[in-house]
């Protein structure tokens, strides 16, 4: 079996994996990273979205072997020293989640969206999150949350410089 080295939320793992093992099953079943859920098997819902080397991927559609030598960030690694990321805070403040099943993927996809476009308008947010489905919220509050996080994140960068 191939051996891979993968860093997940700052911890480096060396694991032997079947070539067919999906990244999301490596995370959930082998590494105990159950914060990333699975919502479909066809990469439509986006619940399993994580960042791989800084870019969002749907981890149900990536093989673990493809993640060899990569740096994975999941929802579990997003807060630093117990402080929530602005996106986590904004989702909470704007009531952008109900059952919360889509939330990890929605937040990770939003992170990538804001990396590419730090100040998106509502239309850009809606189009940018098209690959992440939510059945509870109707998306209004998710859009508000991403807008709010974008403001806080850019504000923070401004104050840091």
């Amino acid at each position: 079996m191939p051996q891979i080295t993968v860093t997940v939320d700052g911890i480096t793992h060396e694991v032997e994996v079947e070539p067919r093992l999906l990244l999301v099953h490596l995370l959930r079943d082998r590494l105990g990273k159950t914060g990333t859920p699975i919502g479909c098997d066809t990469s439509n819902c986006g619940a399993c979205t994580v960042l791989m080397d800084g870019k969002s991927v749907k981890s149900c559609s990536v093989l673990a072997v493809q993640a060899d030598q990569s740096d994975i960030l999941t929802i579990e690694g997003l807060s630093t020293d117990g402080t929530w990321h602005p996106l986590q805070k904004a989702f909470h403040e704007e009531h952008a989640l109900q059952c919360g099943y889509c939330t990890p993927g929605m937040i990770m996809a939003s992170l990538d969206l804001l990396r590419e476009n730090p100040a998106p308008d509502d239309d850009a947010i809606r189009k940018g999150l098209e690959g992440n489905l939510c059945r509870c919220t109707g998306y209004c509050n998710i859009v508000r949350a991403v807008r709010r996080a974008a403001a806080e994140m850019s504000g923070r960068e401004v104050s840091a410089t």
Partner: peptide, 21 residues
């Protein structure tokens, strides 16, 4: 009120049935 249940839901500490090993 902002929801109490969000704490585990936005941080990935949620207890879904499929998480159980």
């Amino acid at each position: 009120r902002r929801r109490k249940e969000d704490t585990r839901l936005v941080t990935g500490r949620t207890r879904w049935t499929d998480n159980i090993q």
